[in-house]
Amino acid sequence: MPILQACAHRIDKQSDEQPATLTCGEAMTDTAIADSLFANFNSSFHGKPKAWGHFSEAGVEGDSEDSEAAPASSSRFAFELERYRSGEINFTDFTRQTTESLMPLLDAHLSIGSHWWFVHSRQGEAETLTLAMLHQRDGYGFDDDLNLVAVQQLNLGQLMLAARIDLTQWQRGQSRQYITYAQDRGNKKLVEAFREWLGCQEGVNAGAETRTLLKAFSDYVESEDLPEEASREKTEALIDYANGQAKRGEPITLDELSELVDEQRPKAFYDYIRNQDYGLAAEIPPDKRTLQQFKRFAGRASGVSISFDSHLLGNSIEYDDERDRLIIKQVPGQLKDQIKQRKG
């Protein structure tokens, strides 16, 4: 993911009683080391719980010829970003001004300093802006004479505040989930304040959307009345694809997923979702926790073999613990036909 622009600023804060101070940097001219850091940052960011959203309508209002007309508070970031994208201000000024506007938020929630890193990058035709608060930690290393020395290193595992904006999707206006931000569950108030500062309105609930997709998939498999082996293969294809997208920080695309689910009929699953009206968007942010919970229960005993998707337990399938009974409310059509033929 080539870096087009990168810039860092340092925020120093000695204690809760003392206000934070800002030391501004300049846009980097040599991005060789930044490329390596960015790759490691992306790996850490993709592994974090995240939420998706978009700028509120107020976030792009204002007259770029008059900075006094800029929207207040949470809309300010989008306004400054629009000024940068239009060429009115350079990358250094954009990042400096937005970091300055962050100072009250950080003063209110943090007692230590940090670095703010901004990266404008491009991959293929897509351009993104990444911004993150990076802390440093004490570490150790060896110098050229093999003496042990204390060093400072960036702690990429601790990403309390980090966001990525798909600039291409934003400008096309065809998505409501072009902002992705880390959800640090231990700092909910800080994350919420950061979201408001971005001017970000939550667009989709990744967990709910992923659960709906998995429900649609199970319904589709049942409607197709597939053999167990084929059902298992399709389930594995879905989970592998969804986990891969989550690892890369990219959405699940229904068109691509439909092709993987049925190569012979690549539009079948997609058409099924649309015809049944599950309310799913064409692109869905994958929720890793929901995907991890999606598995199949299976067992065999005394000539009986049973397997089913875990989320069906408590819905179309119930387990009576006291009587040790499994109750199937919706018998598969193929099985039902065989039973009827036997009885007849």
Rank of each mutant, 00 (worst) to 15 (best):
G59P: 00
K48V: 02
E57P: 02
S56G: 08
E61L: 12
A78D: 02
E65V: 07
S73M: 14
F77K: 00
D66G: 00
N90S: 11
V60P: 02
P49R: 09
L81V: 12
E80M: 06
V60R: 07
Q97W: 09
E61Q: 15
D66R: 00
E82I: 07
F79K: 01
K50A: 04
S67Q: 04
F55N: 00
S75E: 05
E88W: 08
G87W: 04
A69W: 05
G53R: 01
R96N: 06
G62R: 00
E80K: 03
L81A: 08
R96K: 15
E61H: 11
T92A: 14
G53S: 02
A70D: 07
L81M: 07
E82C: 11
R83M: 13
S86P: 07
Q97T: 11
E65H: 14
Q97H: 13
Y84R: 13
A72P: 07
E61I: 04
A51L: 08
K48G: 00
H54V: 05
E65Y: 15
E61D: 14
A69M: 09
H54A: 09
N90D: 15
D63Q: 02
F91T: 00
G53P: 00
T99I: 12
G87Y: 10
Y84I: 13
G87R: 10
E82H: 14
W52D: 00
R96Y: 04
A70R: 15
S75D: 10
S75W: 05
F79A: 03
S64V: 11
A72Y: 13
E80Q: 06
S56R: 13
F94S: 10
R96W: 06
E61T: 14
S86W: 11
I89Q: 05
F55H: 04
F79I: 02
V60T: 12
D66M: 01
S56I: 09
T92P: 02
I89T: 15
S64T: 12
Y84E: 10
W52I: 09
T95C: 11
F55K: 06
D93W: 07
F79G: 04
F79D: 05
Q97R: 15
E65T: 14
G53L: 06
S75K: 10
R96C: 05
T98S: 08
G53M: 01
S64D: 06
Y84L: 11
E88C: 09
S74C: 07
S74F: 12
D63N: 12
E80T: 04
R83K: 13
S73V: 14
P49L: 07
F94G: 00
R83P: 09
R85I: 08
E68S: 05
K48Y: 02
A78C: 07
G53F: 01
S73Q: 14
A70Q: 11
P49G: 10
G53T: 02
A51R: 12
D63V: 06
I89R: 08
A72C: 10
G87E: 06
S64G: 10
R96E: 07
T95S: 15
